[in-house]
């Protein structure tokens, strides 16, 4: 990855998340501290139930921490209400999900147009068509999600994520529902676009091989960052 800026884009400060259950308080995340420089790629590694998805949700402002803070682009998420965080997401953040999360009533083109329309970007149709072309779905603009294969659905989801040129992309097990061959193509595409747009990438995965593609890796175990906090990308 070239052109790494030293400026921190995402930062977790003593982040904690607890939920109340019938058996008592359950700690999902405990005392998480790290920072991610703008334009870098980071993998959050961990087994099922280690807290990856919870952490991703907190970092993206989809959920609120029980303790600690998340800073995005120097702004403290705790200072925003839900609508404020939504605005922040619209401006800065893109998502790619394990189960694609395409809206099944809309065509590929309409799915990609949606964030552009919400951000009131100019020429949403043109922009969406261009990026779909870029991910190889130029011929499938009018297809509905159930007419697309799993790989194509994820390409569409990636196109939707990059359509607004977000400063930061959160990906949650982006290849989790795909076969290894298709997964590889998807990951290539994800990193290509990431590189083209200079996006900060935060990816939750349990796939160690996939995590090696990222510049940095953070490992979670039972809700805590394991030491050493950081595993070298080539390690």
């Amino acid at each position: 990855m070239t052109g790494v800026e030293s400026k921190t884009f995402v930062e977790a400060r003593t982040l904690g998340k607890q939920v109340s259950t019938r058996e008592g308080v359950l700690t999902l995340l405990d005392d998480i501290n790290f920072s991610i420089a703008a334009g870098t790629s980071v993998a959050i590694l961990g087994a099922s139930g280690s807290g990856k998805t919870t952490l991703l949700g907190l970092l993206a402002g989809l959920d609120m921490p029980s303790s600690g803070d998340v800073m995005i682009d120097g702004r403290r998420l705790n200072d925003f209400d839900e609508d404020g965080r939504a605005q922040l997401r619209a401006e800065l953040i893109g998502f790619v999900f394990q189960n694609f999360q395409l809206l099944f009533g809309m065509t590929a083109l309409e799915n990609v147009m949606l964030p552009l329309e919400l951000a009131q970007a100019p020429h949403p149709r043109k922009t969406a068509a261009e990026i779909l072309e870029r991910v190889g779905l130029g011929e499938r603009l009018g297809h509905y999600p159930n007419q697309l294969s799993g790989g194509e659905q994820q390409r569409c989801a990636i196109a939707r994520a990059f359509a607004t040129r977000p400063r930061c992309l959160f990906a949650d097990e982006p290849t989790g529902n795909l076969d290894s061959e298709t997964g590889k193509h998807i990951i290539d595409l994800l990193f290509e676009l990431n590189s083209e747009q200079g996006t900060t990438l935060v990816m939750a995965t349990h796939d160690a091989q996939l995590s090696r593609l990222c510049e940095r890796r953070l490992r979670l175990d039972a809700g805590r960052l394991v030491t050493p906090e950081e595993i070298p990308a080539d390690g």
Partner: peptide
Amino acid sequence: MLRCLGAAQ
């Protein structure tokens, strides 16, 4: 999904 993409309530 709309919330996630940044739409206000």
